[in-house]
Simulated scan of single mutants.
Amino acid sequence: AEVMAGRRPRTGARRLSALRRFYRHLQAKGSVSEDPTEGIEGPRIGINLPQSLSEEEVERLLAAPGDQTPEALRDRAMLEVLYATGLRVSELVALRLSEIDSQAGIVRIVGKGGRERLVPLGEEAQAVLADYLRDARAVFLKGMPATAVFLTRRGGPMTRQAFWCNIKRYAAKAGVETPLSPHTMRHAFATHLINHGADLRVVQLLLGHADLSTTQIYTHVARERLRVLHARHHPRG
């Protein structure tokens, strides 16, 4: 029990698991006859459900930058692409022109572990991105070459930290009170897809999760949607 004392549930669970493997090894070798961890109950680990935004909050956030300046066009395009594709912020700021297929309306992303995936942009994100590329990006370039899609005033690629500051500023402007994290728009992307009927395996592919178990954090969304649909359509709902 001491292995759990004063420990967070996940830390205690990891230590208990390591001790169990150790004593099983000793038992297999015949060094011990009993496993003292056998009677210890592991801690209960809750599911950390991701914070998401409502569709109405997302609409306000996307509109917050406006379109009056090159920076506003860039930030609106970044938010639209982020919500349309569910990219990680690190993937968004690293996006290169060569990874955008404007004809097909898709982006090619090389994510964690070198895994490649193709993600649709959607009409709205394509239109806003085209406005930025046509009217604003050249302002940042100042005649210098650059491969990154999203640039700063100095012509360098946008950083995760700078974009994160922008998101918080626009959230305050839009009156969005839901606590934000760098993954908030990614969670909103997945949640809203499922709310509109997308299968978990489709969401897994779009998010670039190697294992469906990672995507299953969104099963609570799918269950709630099923409950609402049952209540709405079943004769005795």
Rank of each mutant, 00 (worst) to 15 (best):
2 E>H: 12
2 E>V: 13
3 V>D: 04
5 A>V: 12
8 R>P: 08
9 P>Y: 00
10 R>E: 10
15 R>G: 02
17 S>M: 01
23 Y>L: 04
33 S>V: 14
34 E>K: 06
34 E>W: 02
35 D>A: 10
38 E>G: 12
40 I>Q: 06
40 I>K: 01
43 P>C: 01
43 P>G: 01
46 G>L: 11
48 N>I: 02
49 L>R: 13
57 E>G: 05
57 E>N: 03
59 E>A: 14
61 L>T: 08
64 A>L: 03
67 D>I: 08
69 T>N: 06
69 T>V: 06
73 L>S: 03
74 R>W: 01
77 A>D: 01
80 E>P: 08
82 L>E: 03
82 L>G: 02
83 Y>W: 05
85 T>R: 00
86 G>V: 10
88 R>H: 12
90 S>D: 12
91 E>N: 10
94 A>N: 15
98 S>F: 00
101 D>G: 03
102 S>C: 07
108 R>Q: 07
109 I>W: 03
110 V>M: 15
110 V>P: 10
111 G>Y: 05
112 K>H: 11
120 P>E: 09
122 G>T: 11
123 E>A: 15
124 E>I: 15
125 A>P: 03
125 A>G: 09
125 A>E: 05
125 A>W: 02
128 V>H: 04
128 V>Q: 10
129 L>E: 09
129 L>Y: 07
131 D>S: 13
132 Y>R: 10
133 L>T: 11
134 R>F: 00
137 R>H: 05
137 R>K: 13
141 L>C: 12
142 K>Q: 15
148 A>Q: 14
149 V>T: 11
150 F>K: 09
151 L>R: 10
153 R>S: 14
156 G>N: 14
158 M>W: 04
161 Q>E: 14
161 Q>P: 08
162 A>E: 09
163 F>I: 12
164 W>I: 12
166 N>L: 13
167 I>D: 02
167 I>A: 02
168 K>I: 06
169 R>T: 12
172 A>M: 07
173 K>T: 14
174 A>V: 11
179 P>N: 04
181 S>K: 11
182 P>H: 04
185 M>P: 07
194 I>Y: 02
196 H>F: 04
197 G>M: 01
200 L>V: 11
203 V>E: 03
205 L>W: 00
210 A>Y: 11
211 D>V: 09
211 D>M: 04
211 D>I: 06
213 S>W: 05
213 S>G: 06
217 I>P: 07
220 H>A: 02
223 R>K: 08
226 L>V: 13
226 L>Y: 13
227 R>S: 10
231 A>S: 14
234 H>L: 03
235 P>V: 12
